[in-house]
């Protein structure tokens, strides 16, 4: 098996040599607005210029998410979305683009349940958190994912999980926030593979008008402690945001703005809306022509 993170490395290296702005990774929720529509939206995003993916797993209690994602998770769950729906989206993305780095992103509790449904031993309440994630790691790797982000699994609690993921060729992608201390940044730097996800602002997900004023200083603090590629997410919604953060980091993640684009497009026009939006946000199409 290839060591964890090879698609991330290749994508970041290729992008650096092209020098055409940051990679754009859309965050698409598996099963939003319905499980049936997700594969088309994934393919549309690739046509629009997605360089890779975060595939979101809906959760009933998303404490790090703003109203747009809360509502979208509720809609997806009501439409019958499960972890399998998200894994199907990973599979679609992998089939459509064999080289795109694909990251599964979600909260711990639905991930833990992936273990217990296949392997009743993990129902043992005495186990460490890593063991029950074995089921998730196996299924995510089979679907073609390169890494997993667990929003509520901080570095302090992560070593067992990281090992389990690595055994399946997956990177555990860590998050850092503007509030992270240098000690915590160093702890992540020592463990990271693939990339490190920088939360651009102190807050929950959701589009913002501007990139946070202290983002540059934050990037500087992280850069001082690691060479792992950085991607920025939370609040990024417009072409000019992508261009601005692209001067500091090699990848940008677009979440709520894309979800809103999907939610507000008429049924039947959603894939086209995703493609158009990604063309604009990646700079492949100017804003004017999209109007």
């Amino acid at each position: 098996m290839t060591e964890p993170g090879h698609r991330y490395r290749e994508a970041f290296a290729a992008s650096a040599s092209r020098d055409d702005g940051p990679l754009v990774f859309p965050f698409l929720i598996g099963g939003f607005p319905t499980p049936e529509e997700t594969p088309d939206l994934v393919r549309a995003a690739i046509r629009g210029g997605a360089a890779g993916f975060e595939i979101g797993v809906p959760f009933s209690d998303p404490i790090a998410d703003g109203p747009v994602h809360q509502d979208a998770y509720t809609v997806a769950l009501a439409a019958g979305a499960t972890l399998d729906t998200a894994l199907d989206a990973v599979r679609t993305a992998r089939e459509t683009d064999p080289d795109a780095p694909i990251t599964l992103m979600g909260y711990l509790n639905p991930f833990l349940s992936a273990g217990s449904s296949e392997d009743s031993e993990t129902d043992d309440p005495g186990g460490a958190v890593g063991e029950p994630l074995e089921g998730l790691a196996k299924r995510a790797a089979e679907a073609g994912a390169d890494g997993v982000i667990v929003v509520d699994l901080p570095v302090d609690e992560s070593d067992a999980a990281r090992e389990v993921f690595a055994q399946h060729g997956l990177s555990l992608i860590y998050l850092l926030a503007p509030t992270s201390t240098d000690e915590r940044i160093a702890a992540v730097a020592n463990r990271a593979s693939g990339f490190i996800y920088l939360v651009s602002l102190t807050g929950v997900t959701g589009a913002r008008d501007q990139v946070a004023a202290d983002f540059e200083a934050f990037v500087g603090r992280v850069r001082a402690l690691t060479d792992t590629p950085l991607a920025v997410g939370f609040g990024i919604s417009r072409r000019e945001h992508v261009a601005e953060v692209g001067k500091l980091v090699p990848a940008a993640i677009i979440g709520s703005a894309l979800t809103t684009t999907i939610a507000s497009a008429p049924v039947g026009d959603r894939a086209a809306a995703v493609e158009r939006y990604l063309e604009v946000v990646t700079g492949h199409r100017s804003e004017e022509t999209s109007e």
């Binding site: 509520d152 901080p154 570095v155 926030a177 915590r184 807050g203």
Partner: peptide, 13 residues
């Protein structure tokens, strides 16, 4: 096995 700190990074400090 119970307890712990399963919180978003922003809150950890």
């Amino acid at each position: 096995p119970f307890g712990g700190q399963f919180a978003p990074e922003t809150l950890m400090p």
